[in-house]
Each structure stands twice: as structure tokens, then as C-alpha cells.
Design a protein around this nucleic acid. Structure first.
Lengths: 743, 743
DNA sequence: GAGCGTATTCTAGAACA
DNA sequence: TGTTCTAGAATACGCTC
């Protein structure tokens, strides 16, 4: 087998039953190739040729023979039972049974002989003689399957289908074609008495073989030929298999790499959003409730469309367990889009859905059941570490039976959608709630825009929001609070970023455990703050305008990122508003800052941490901005260093490994880039993650445990970065949370 | 010849061509009777049967054989020369030679096999099979006279006449029919030769095989059975293989989809970063030049590690053409990481590398050749539309030869890296420059942090940067300017986000075409603005602090996202420092602001556009912040709507198509989500992209061409969104640039 | 161009009714 | 004897050596 042949064999067939591989083309006679292609590919087939299933694929020949009245006796013994699966192919005519064209491995073709000869044979062969076609079929061992009405005086014998079958002629298995051998002409050497010799004298033994009788010779020859056929087939199979393996490996590596990249992107986006939310999230505190009602009409809940292969992990009983992590993105994106579609301008954040939606309150992050897909679709980040079960394996287990259905099934197998829809009273039924909230939001945003002071309040409010996750009620809790906030079930995490949403949310209020005295009078603080801000507003009109525009743009950005407006109506709003108000006052910054700290349940304050820490240092220690800046800068610099180290040694990590493999997959890569051996993506993402984590941690660290907060945060960040590497999908949710929870 | 036969022969025929005599009816086989009658009597003949003279009745056989090229040799000897007159009968079709039906003793009949079978055979015989009819003819010694065009590749073989002749079959001589005798079956006395098939696996001839000894038989049988087992196994393997192929195909589809999504994510992140950089990027304008030198030591250029499979698209001669778009991510990430690693605190943005680095100035965006990978690795966005060549196919072409090497080769095949490295004098040699600049940047940042007024200045400076893309020098230009900016080749796009870099850039300045009158005296405006801001600073201390913190955090964020610090250290450092200093001072803001403007080399001011527009409107029209806000909000809202529309119809687009496939690939999808037919991700990404583009475009639009800048930008964004869909990887670079350049 | 295998055509074998 | 399916046989065609 030449190299080309092997290459061709390795070539995957396009779609279900594609053209023969190059190797097959060299091994398989042209007739079989034409036959296979004409039968397998409707495009190439004459339009008048249609296929329909005739017998089950696994139908053994005896079984089929019993079904068929005629010629079963003769055909049966001839074919024997070596091959239980038979392919029947029909040459079909236009008007005959156009149904069930491609589902069955049997390729029945109904023939109107004349038309078939004219349209099909002329297309594929040099002749248009149906008899020649049949002769070829017979020559290659095809057998006609007598029609069921055989023997009956029929009026349409010529229109009736002719079914031919061959044990090795299957629609989806072109590799079996090499097993079909043309009957060799005996080429009688001893031509004088061919009739007496029952078996054509095999051409080989004219000189050598002595003692063997003709029968034996025939048998031996048949055996040899059979062995040769098997050898060819095995070669083809092996080459194809190896190529498939390579392709599959490459695919899986790429899949893992893609998931990691996706997760990192997701994380990056989440962090950005969190950061933005922390910075500007509460811009829309103001009470303009009249203007915002422009958005909601298109509340049509969009179910997520794209899912990774492993999407319905729990449903598949662990089959696709590993791939689900990427779903976070999908879910988030869907969520975002849907939310965005619901309300045009809302502040939200894309959360890492790495936390399971179980009732444990600690892991409630970015869960939006109302989005018609459950957070459970987000696999735990740990799954990334476990090598994914390859779909090919799964497929192979059930493969030979049917090829196409596998791909298109499993739609009903995704429980997330259904379960969530059923259990959570999805958004469609609660459209009224979000709309109202949306209006409020619109008004708030507008109001906010008119005065930059709002921004200040929002920031403080964010600082005051200590337990972004603690406020989020688990699913069970959400169900209880659904009356007040229809969307609250799935949008709690988003709503926490919104002041108004928090305020309006009727979810069980979880007062921060240790609220500083400043928080006790948030209203007054807010008012004071507002007054001060209003006073300085005219002076700093440009700043205000810029801030407003910045706010607007960021809001738009966040909205465009698809934050769920429905989250605004989430449960724990009541607390959020007071906090926000309290934070607004400049003098109350300390209180606002302390609140999150005292509130030990800092489960998701990651993104906001930066602002919090900033707010503390900057506002509280406005006299020392340089210190903060220095610390940040030094941290960044260290972060760069740390990343460099990570990058250098990243090859050993899981991500690096995958990356390497992935590179291998792609032929086009210039491997000079590989000298680094590090995943740049990973490093950058890690760095960003580290920075964000640190920022958040710095914010949450009201009283740094170590002597200098800078160093403490720095080290912490480093550790987080390191810990993030093994589980790239959820560095934030996993290590970040733990680190924060330590404090 | 029996007595009856002789009687029949003696019997005079009725008329010329009448029915056979009774004796003949008894002697002559029914087939011949039917044949004779059908040929002789047009009344009885099917109307479709027509006769025409073919050869003279007395034509000797040799004559006919000479006339006919084929088969004459064989037919001649067989028939012998006993009868010189031959009857040719044709089964004629309607439309063929209706002339000369009855004049000739030869009975030519042209046959359309199907119709003849249906109309004639069904009338005369029990069957309608032309083959059976021919079999009978052959059985009675008729021979087919090959057509004159025999051997020629004919298109109407089936319509062409089949001429059969028999020495004793004459039209007017029914008595000769008795001379036609049916060939008798041999009735082999030695019937044990059932296994006449030379090749067909002698499927265990149950009883027959005679000559073989039992031992031999057993051995052979065992061998045959073993072969059968092997064949079965091979069949199983083949089926498995086919399933594997399907899995592979599905995986590839998913991979393509994942890459698309990834590219979109990347683009989104890039846009966010650009936006943020535009908004906050210039925080570090201050002139503290002493602090920044801590970063550079690890300037080791990091080559990108992970690349998508289709990375080096142009290299592969179109094989992997389509997948390269995701590379943008890779390249960007790498770039970012490397840049970040070089200098810890610099503002940059992840650019879409979708624009080719060709010398055409229009496509110069985010090209960082110094990063050891060229932007050419980023495939053009158009490639996304073309269905990707499956790697498996590619692999299969070269598969069986070597499996692993394929994955790891192609390093040298990627010209981008090498070419860029060689042509652009990569960063390693220019490490000194960045360091100094870095220090400047550090100082600038610190200075900036101390006063929120800096932010205002920055924004104004951004507003001055009108033509983000037009200023971008192609590679050739960069090479020329390399003396001034060692890193400028690769980092021009990053540097454009930095005021300092822009200001220091020695590229040909392109003044903003339509700057509002406010821009004409930016210095004064800036000074006034600064004074106002300073005046209000103490009153709005909280705001300032928050702004600083926001600035710092965003800067850190941007840095962490991997903006190249080297961009800061680009050639025009000398300019940058003065600018920074100028910017630091509240009174000198105007000067700093103008410098970048006059400095037309604003390579890549995309992200800043938003701020520019903001700054312009906000500063120049500080009294109308609401207008801007409203416009933005409305744009956002429209963007959401537009996205919805896109999503609905997105299925037809290239991205949508892939998405659909991807969905099919993944079994776990709930197909209810597909009702939308839209890629949610796409829509969201598009929306975000649109918004960002619009923001940037709005900023760059100093004088909106249309009546209301809002509408103009809005429409532009929409168009961009539409154009983005087919090429998801570079919506910004392509449409955005164009739109911007229009102005 | 010989050799070889396949393709095409015509005919025959074989089994069955 | 008829019918059907299949094989034989001869030639034609296309390829490689």
C-alpha cells in the first residue's frame, strides 16, 4: 500500500458516508466505487434514484431468505452465513418509495430499468445496459433479492425494484468494499475439458502444485484470496484507524485547550465585569422610575443554543463529564444575551458559574435558573483536571448500529433546561416583574446620569456589599422569595451588583453581621453625600460629565456583555440599598469598607475587591495615594515576574500540556514559538486573575493580617496564581474564594 | 425431430404470415410460436412493435458478419452457414423507425426494453422481463446482431434496437420454426461440482465436496471458518471505525465552533480593554520617571504557544484556511502577556490581529511583529465563512506515514514568526528603551493618582485623537520610524492607547479633520478645565479619590490583561516625557493634550474613541451630559434590538451556520434552544462589538457628518454589526477601521 | 507493446416452477 | 418448457511495466 493509499485511507469520510478514501480507491474496483458512491450520496446519485430501507442491517442472510420467497435456497447456501449483515441496494426510480432514504444501512434502490439505465448507468458507466450492470453486480458477488411478489403474475415487473445485496456492501462502511472481490475468470490453462472440471483450474498451479485435487486447490485458492482480502482490509483499517486516532487526539487536545481558553476568557470577562460593577455598578440608584420602561418588550426567554459536547454532564451519566466547564461561558453568554435583550441598560456581571447550584449557600454564584438552563450545567472546575471521556469512545460503544442518529439525538437528554424551567418558574411567566424593575432601572440610570454624585454613592454601596454570595439565596430559598421578585431565583448574583435591584429585592435580608455604626444610618449618609456632591457638582462639571459618560459607556458595555436585567429584581435588594446609601457619604467610607470585612461571608467579592480596597486606601487614606499606587505597581510587577515563572514552568502544568498538544495538532504552527513552553494565554489570564483577586482581596482585607498589606496581598496573589493553574476553568471560584475565606 | 415436427413443417403456412398450423402449434415450442406471431402479425403485435427491413432476407450469414463489426466472429461459427437467410426481428419502440413495417421478410423490431417488456412481453409471456425474453431467444439459438454502432459509447443503448436472428426464423416461413430446437440443459451426470464458484468462499459445502479427504476438508473448513471469523472481526472494526469517523467529524465541527466563540470572546475582551484603556488609559501621564524601572529584566520574548489548528493559514496553502481567526486570541494573548511581562505597568489593549500586516495602511491594526509572531498568523475574517477543511482530512492525506511528526512539524512552515522576527528587529534588542519609558510611566501614574484632574486631562487628550486607524503606519512605515521607536513596529497599536506614546510618536501626524471649535483652543480649555477641577477638588474629594482608585484599578486591570509596557517605551519617548510632564501640571494640560493631536501618529486610538467623544462632548459641552448619555443609551438599546434581529437571521450567516453545526454535533443540546436559530453568543458579542465600535467611532467623530451624532454613529454601528457577523474574528479591525477612516 | 485486470456484451448454466 | 438469477466467454478498454 503506497503512502498515498494510506493517507487516503486515513481520510475521514465526509459526513456519514463519504467518498472512498484514496487507498480504497486504489484497492476497490471502479465498479464498486461507483456503486457505492451512487448509492451513498444522493447528490451524486441520479435524482431518480432513491433509497429506502429494505431489511434491517443486522439481518442475517437466512433471515432475509426466509422473508424472501424465491432464490433464498440458492442464495443462502452460496453466501453462507459468514456475513450476517447484508446490504441490499436498489436502483430506485423516481416514483418509487422515496421515503426512508438514508437511515438504513441497507441501500435499496428501486429501478425502472430503462430510466435507470439511461440516467444512472450512463452517468456512472460506459454503458446504459441494465444487464451489464447486473452482470457486474453478479461478478462482484452481489445477489438479487427476489421481490416479495416474485412469482406472481405482475404487471409491472420492470418497474418493480431489483434488490441486490452483498455481505460487504454497506452504506456507511466504505472500508468493507475492499472485501468484495471480483470473480476471477478461470483462465483455464487446460482448456480442453473445462466442462469436466467442476471447478475452474486455478491459474496459479500450472507447474507446481502436484498432489492437490481441484477441489482442494479451489479451496486453497479461495483461502489465499480471502486472506489477501483480509490483509488489504486490515491495512486499510489500521491506517485509517491510526489517522483517526491522531485526529481524535488532536481534537481532544484542542478541545481541552479551547475550554481552557474559553474558561480564561470567561474568567477575564467576569473579572472585568466584576470590576466594572464594583466601580460603577450602582450608578443607577436614583429614583427616576418613569423613563426606564422602554426596554422589556422582547422578554422572550432565549434558551441557550450552543453547548459544548459535554454539556448535559449529569444527564449523560458521566459520559461527557469533563467538558461541561466550558458551559459556563455558554450559560453566561446566553444569560447575558437574554438579560441584555430583556433590558437594555442594566449593570451586571458575568459570573464564573463554577460553583455548583446546590443548596449550599456558599457556592451560589452566577446562577440564573430563570434563563431556562440551570447552573448545574456549569460543571465544577475540578472536572477540568480529570481527563475527559472521549465521545468517540462513547460513540463506539453504540456505533455500529446507527450512524446518523447519534449526532442529532440527546436533545431531550439535557435536563438543565427542562428542570430549571419546571422548577423555577422561568422568566416568561414573570415578565411583569422584570419590566417594572427595568423601568426602575432605567429611571435610576437616568437619574444617576444627571449627577455624578450618584456614582460616588454607588461605589460606596458596593463597598458596603460584603456578602455578594451570602445574599444570594440558594434555589430553595429562591423559591420562597419568588413572590416578591419573580426573577430572583436565577438572577440573584447579578442583582447584587445593582443597587436598585438589591433595594427592590424582597429576598430574605441577610444583614451584614458586623455593620459599622456608619451603616446604621446609611440614609443620612447618602443624603449628606448627595449634598456634598451636589455642592461640588457645578465646580466639577466636567468631571461629572466625564464620569457620567464613562458611567454610561461602562453601563452600555456591561449591558452589551449581556448582564441580566432581571437580576436587578433579585432578592437581597433591601440590604443593598441601605449599604449603598451609607457608602455614599465620603465620611462614611470607612464604615462602608468595614462592612464587607466584618461580613465574613465574602463569597464572591472578587471583582469588587479592587474597588473596595481602593476605596479604603484612597478615600480613607487620601493622603497616601502613592502608597497604594506603589503597592499596586509593585504587585503588578511581581505579578509579571510570577507569571514569567509560571510561564517558564507552565509546560508541566495541565494547561501547558494541553497547549503543547494543541500546538502539535496544528501543523501550521511555527514551533519556534514553543521554545518558551508556556501558554501565554494562561499566563496573561493568570496575571489578570491574580491582579483581580488581589485587588478584591485587598479590598476585603480591612485589616491586613501581615505587617504591610502590600506584601500580604502580593503573596496571596501569587499563591492564587499558582493554585489557579491546575484548574484553569475556575481559578476565581476555587482558589480565590478559599483565600478570601481564610481571612 | 419428431413426427409432429415434420408434420408441422410440411404444413403450408396460412398465407404469407399467418398463424401457425395446429401441428406446428403442437410441435413448435410456445415461445417460438409467440415470437413468430408477434413478429409476423402487426395486428397481434403490440402497437409499439414495429418492423423494418434490416438486411436482405437472403443475406448470408458471413455477409452479415462482415457488416457487423462485433461478435460476428463468434456468432458466425456458432450458427454455421446452414441457413443463408436469416430473420432478424426487432422489438421496436414507438418512436423508432415506424417505416417499412411489413414489407420485408426480416422482422426487425426495435425495442425500448422497458416498454417492450411491459407491452409485448406481458402480452405474450408470463413475465415482463426482457432478460427472460432474451434468455429464451438464446435458448432457442437466436443470436443478437450487434448494433452497427456497437462498441461506440452510446447514450441511448437502451433505445437502440436489438436484433436477433436465427437461421430458421423467417417471417414467411413458419414451417422452419420446427427446426429451431431449444437447447437442452446438460443434466450433468456428475453433479457434485456445485461449488463451481472459483472465488466465492466455499461456504462449507455441506455435503458435496467429493475428492477431498476428510482431513483436508476439515483443515480447509477450519481455515475457512477462521477466515470468516477474521472477517467478522474486521467488520466490527470497520463499523467502529465509521463511528469514530463520525465522532471525529462532530468533534471538528465543535472545534470550529469553539474557535469562533473563542474569537468572539477575545474580541469582546479586547474591545472592553480598548474601551477601558481609552477611558482610563492615560492615568499614568505624570512625570515621575524614577520609579518605573523595576520591571523590565525579564524581557524574554515570549512566543505564542498555543495556536489554533489552522494557524498558519497562508502557509498551508489554504488547507486550514478557516480556523486561523481564533489565532487572534492567541496572538493577542501572547502579545499581551509578553508586553505585560516586559513592563509591569503599561496601558495597552489586546488588539484584534485580524488585519493583515500588509503594507496597505488600511489594515494596520494591532500588529506587533516584534512579538515574534506576525499578524499574518491572523487569518482574514473572510476565512470564517468558508467551511473549514477538516484537519482530519488533512491529516489523513499524510497520515499513515507518520502520526506524531505531523503534529509537531510545521514549525518552519509558519513564515510569520520568522519573517517578522527577521524583518522587524524584535524587542529583545531594544530592551533599554522600554525601561526608561517605564520609569516615566510609573511616575506618570503616580502623579496622576494624586489628582483626579489628571483624568480629565487624559480624557481631553483622548478626544484630540481623531483618526485611530488612519494614523497607523503600515509595517513599512514602522520600519522607517523604528529608529525613534524601537518597539514601535510591533507595539504601535498598543502605544496608541497611551497619550504619551502617541505624543512621543514620530509618525506622520494626522490632525483630526473636524475638530469642533473647542478643540481649536484645547490648551486654554484644558487650563480652564483644570482650574475648575482643581477648584472643585477639595469639595469633591471623595469623587476624586474614587476616581483615582478607579483609575488605578482600571490601569491595573489593563495591565494585568497584558498590555505591552513596551508600547510605552516606544521611540517617541522624548516626546512622551515632556507631554507627561505637561499633562501632569494642571495648567499645562492643554499643551499635553494638543501634542498628541498634532502628532498624527495616533496608531490605534480605537478604544479611546469613546473617551474622545466623551471628552469632547463632556468638556466642550459640559452643560449637556444628558444628551450624550441619552444617545449612548439609545444606541445601546438599538444595539440590543439590532442584535436581536441579527440573531434571528444569523443562522444563515457563516457564523450561524457553524453554530448550527456545532449544535448538531453536541448531543447534549436541548434543541428547543435552537428554535431561535441564532447564536446567542454571536448576538451578544456583536452587540458588544457594535457598542464598542460605536463608542470609539463616536469619540473619533469630532464633527458628526449627520445631523445628530447619535444617529450617525448608531447607524454606523449597525452596519458594522452586520458586517461583523460573517467575520467574527475581526469586526473591529475590518468594519470599524473602515468606518473610522471614512471620516 | 505485452501483461494484466476490469468492463461490457452476449450467451449459457442452473435452479425452480 | 418457462422464468429467473447467475456464470461463462469473448472482446474491449485502460493501466503499468
Amino acid at each position: 500500500m503506497s503512502l498515498d493509499t494510506q493517507v487516503a485511507l486515513a481520510r475521514p469520510n465526509r459526513g456519514e458516508s463519504s467518498h472512498l478514501s484514496r487507498a480504497a480507491r486504489q484497492v476497490v474496483p471502479p465498479f464498486l466505487q461507483k456503486l457505492y458512491e451512487s448509492v451513498s450520496f444522493p447528490v451524486l446519485r441520479c435524482p431518480s434514484m432513491l433509497t429506502r430501507p429494505h431489511l434491517p442491517a443486522a439481518c442475517s442472510y437466512p433471515e432475509s431468505s426466509t422473508t424472501l420467497p424465491m432464490r433464498s435456497s440458492s442464495a443462502g447456501p452460496k453466501l453462507g452465513t459468514l456475513f450476517t449483515v447484508r446490504l441490499r441496494f436498489f436502483v430506485a426510480f423516481d416514483h418509487i418509495c422515496p421515503s426512508s432514504s438514508s437511515s438504513s444501512p441497507i441501500v435499496p434502490v428501486v429501478l425502472n430499468h430503462e430510466k435507470f439505465a439511461r440516467e444512472v448507468l450512463g452517468r456512472w458507466f460506459k454503458h446504459q445496459k441494465f444487464a451489464s450492470f447486473v452482470r457486474q453486480l453478479n461478478m462482484y458477488g452481489f445477489h438479487k433479492i427476489p421481490h416479495l411478489q416474485q412469482g406472481v403474475l405482475k404487471s409491472d415487473t420492470d418497474t418493480e425494484p431489483w434488490h441486490f445485496e452483498h455481505p460487504n456492501f454497506h452504506r456507511g462502511q466504505p472500508d468493507l468494499l475492499c472485501l468484495i472481490q471480483r470473480k476471477k475468470q478461470p483462465t483455464h490453462p487446460n482448456g480442453e475439458d473445462a466442462a469436466s472440471l467442476d471447478i475452474q483450474e486455478p491459474n496459479l498451479p500450472p507447474n507446481g502444485v502436484a498432489n492437490v485435487t481441484p477441489n482442494q486447490l479451489m479451496d486453497i485458492n479461495s483461502i489465499v484470496s480471502g486472506i489477501a482480502v483480509i490483509k488489504r482490509h486490515q491495512q486499510a483499517i489500521s491506517s485509517e484507524l491510526s489517522s483517526l486516532k491522531q485526529s481524535n487526539d488532536a481534537l481532544w487536545k484542542e478541545s481541552v485547550a479551547a475550554r481552557q481558553r474559553h474558561a480564561k476568557h470567561q474568567d477575564t470577562i467576569n473579572r472585568i465585569l466584576k470590576f466594572l460593577a464594583g466601580v460603577f455598578g450602582h450608578t443607577d440608584d436614583a429614583g427616576q422610575s418613569s423613563e426606564g420602561s422602554n426596554t422589556p418588550p422582547q422578554v422572550t426567554p432565549r434558551i441557550r443554543q450552543r453547548l459544548m459536547i459535554g454539556d448535559s454532564v449529569p444527564t449523560m451519566k458521566g459520559r461527557h463529564v469533563d467538558i461541561a466547564e466550558v458551559e459556563d461561558d455558554e450559560a453566561d453568554l446566553l444569560r447575558n444575551k437574554r438579560l441584555r435583550s430583556l433590558f437594555s441598560d442594566r449593570y451586571a456581571t458575568i459570573e464564573n458559574a463554577d460553583t455548583p447550584t446546590t443548596s449550599s449557600p456558599s457556592t451560589v454564584e452566577s446562577i440564573a435558573p430563570s434563563e431556562a438552563f440551570s447552573p448545574r450545567s456549569d460543571s465544577s472546575p475540578d472536572k477540568m483536571d480529570t481527563p475527559p471521556v472521549r465521545p468517540s469512545e462513547i460513540l463506539s460503544r453504540t456505533s455500529s448500529s446507527s450512524s446518523v442518529p447519534r449526532i442529532s439525538t440527546a436533545s431531550a437528554s439535557n435536563p438543565f433546561q427542562n428542570s430549571n424551567l419546571n422548577g423555577q418558574a422561568p422568566s416568561s411567566g414573570n415578565a411583569a416583574g422584570p419590566n417594572a424593575t427595568d423601568a426602575l432601572w432605567q429611571a435610576a440610570i437616568q437619574h444617576m446620569m444627571q449627577s455624578p454624585a450618584q456614582f460616588q454613592r454607588i461605589m460606596q454601596a458596593f463597598a458596603s456589599q460584603q456578602q455578594p454570595y451570602a445574599n444570594i439565596a440558594p434555589d430553595s430559598m429562591r423559591g420562597n422569595t419568588s413572590t416578591l421578585s419573580p426573577y430572583d431565583a436565577g438572577q440573584a448574583d447579578y442583582g447584587r451588583w445593582l443597587n436598585q435591584a438589591v433595594a427592590s429585592n424582597s429576598a430574605p435580608p441577610i444583614p451584614p453581621p458586623h455593620l459599622p455604626p456608619v451603616d446604621d444610618s446609611p440614609m443620612q449618609l447618602l443624603i449628606d453625600e448627595s449634598n456634598q456632591l451636589q455642592k461640588s457638582y457645578h465646580n466639577a462639571s466636567e468631571i461629572n460629565a466625564d464620569m457620567d459618560m464613562l458611567q454610561t459607556s461602562i453601563n452600555s458595555l456591561i449591558q452589551d456583555l449581556g448582564i441580566d436585567p432581571g437580576s436587578l429584581s433579585q432578592a437581597p435588594d433591601d440590604h443593598g440599598v441601605p449599604h449603598v446609601n451609607g457608602m455614599n457619604g465620603s465620611t462614611t467610607n470607612g464604615g462602608g469598607f468595614h462592612t464587607p470585612m466584618s461580613n465574613g461571608f465574602t463569597n464572591g467579592v472578587n471583582g469588587m475587591g479592587v474597588l473596595n480596597g481602593m476605596g479604603e486606601l484612597g478615600v480613607g487614606d487620601s493622603s497616601q495615594p502613592d502608597f497604594l499606587l506603589d503597592s499596586l505597581l509593585s504587585q503588578i510587577g511581581d505579578g509579571a515576574h510570577a507569571n514569567g515563572g509560571l510561564g517558564g514552568s507552565g509546560g508541566g502544568l495541565g494547561g501547558g500540556d494541553v497547549t503543547m498538544d494543541y500546538r502539535d495538532v496544528t501543523d501550521n504552527y511555527d514551533h519556534s514559538a514553543r521554545i518558551d513552553g508556556t501558554s501565554i494565554e494562561d499566563a496573561s489570564t493568570e496575571q489578570l486573575t491574580a491582579f483581580l483577586d488581589e485587588a478584591s482581596s485587598a479590598s476585603s482585607e480591612a485589616t491586613p493580617a501581615t505587617g504591610s498589606p502590600l506584601m500580604s496581598t502580593h503573596q496571596k496573589r501569587k499563591s492564587e496564581v499558582m493554585s489557579d493553574v491546575p484548574m484553569p476553568s475556575s481559578p476565581d471560584g476555587g482558589a480565590g474564594k478559599k483565600a478570601k475565606r481564610k481571612r
